[in-house]
């Protein structure tokens, strides 16, 4: 439990850091700045993966709960949604197809099928988390 709280505290600290950086004028959302700082801190070993693993997984697993209140706000937007339904749907379909084609075809070009590399830490990586 203490372990979990330490993870939450670290994540909150980085969110605060991101907020601060955004406030002093970095034009990127605070949460994303916090994410980048957090990623950097993990990469250079300033914080250890096992300190933050449980807390981060918990926040990510229940992310849907966190955007329920904003989604409920759609109840006030019936008119706007109705008027813009066509534009919204067209934008969605065109853009989703475009992203799949760009990334998929670039992937086909840049990532040719390869034999399985021995010793890739994929399996052990995932085993603990599933």
């Amino acid at each position: 439990m203490l372990d979990f709280l330490r993870g939450i505290a670290i994540v909150l600290g980085f969110d605060g850091l991101g907020w601060g950086l955004h406030r002093v004028g970095v034009p990127i959302p605070g949460g994303v700045l916090g994410l980048l700082a957090f990623y950097l801190a993990l990469s250079v070993g300033l914080i250890k993966l096992e300190w933050v693993e449980r807390a981060s997984s918990f926040l990510l697993r229940h992310m849907v709960l966190l955007f329920v209140p904003l989604t409920v706000g759609l109840m006030n937007m019936g008119q706007l949604l109705q008027r813009q339904a066509l534009a919204i749907l067209a934008s969605l379909v065109v853009s989703v197809v475009a992203v799949f084609l760009t990334t998929g075809l670039m992937g086909r070009w840049l990532l040719p099928p390869q034999p399985v590399l021995p010793g890739l830490p994929l399996d052990e990586e995932k085993a603990g988390k599933a």
Binding site: G18, G31, L36, Y39, L42, L49, L70
Partner: peptide, 20 residues
């Protein structure tokens, strides 16, 4: 509801963990 929305910031930061 705002109290829950507030946690979206920390949840964004947490994405750094799987990314790493």
């Amino acid at each position: 509801g705002n109290l829950l929305t507030w946690w979206l910031g920390p949840a964004t930061v947490a994405l750094g963990m799987p990314m790493y």
